[in-house]
């Protein structure tokens, strides 16, 4: 029988490789960012289950549609500006 030193290393994968995997195709609804209504509160970023809000130098940018599953949490949590949401959900394929 092999000792543990001789055994091949088990299921060790590259760190963070799930990043390559496309979960964007799961979406039934697609979030749209309306920059003019955005106050850069970053609630969308901190509450996103899929790390699908790109942020640079402390400011949000476009959605990462490769990973966004379209749950809509960001749109619900978005305070918007003067009652106008900076994120709206739209049906895919329309």
């Amino acid at each position: 029988m092999k000792g543990w030193r001789e055994l091949e290393i088990g299921a060790v994968t590259e760190a963070g490789s799930a990043d390559e995997y496309n979960t964007g195709s799961w979406r039934a609804f697609r979030p749209r960012w309306i920059e003019e209504n955005c106050i850069q509160c970053l609630f969308c970023w901190i509450y996103c289950p899929d790390s699908a809000i790109t942020v640079k130098d402390g400011k949000r940018g476009e959605f990462d549609y490769k990973h966004c599953k379209g749950c809509g949490i960001c749109a619900v949590e978005c305070p918007g500006k003067k009652g106008k949401k900076a994120i709206v959900m739209e049906e895919e394929g329309k």
Partner: peptide, 16 residues
């Protein structure tokens, strides 16, 4: 330190 592309359901609380 947790990337997107994991396969937890849309809107899952755990990855947040």
């Amino acid at each position: 330190l947790l990337t997107g592309g994991h396969r937890l359901c849309a809107g899952c609380g755990a990855p947040i």
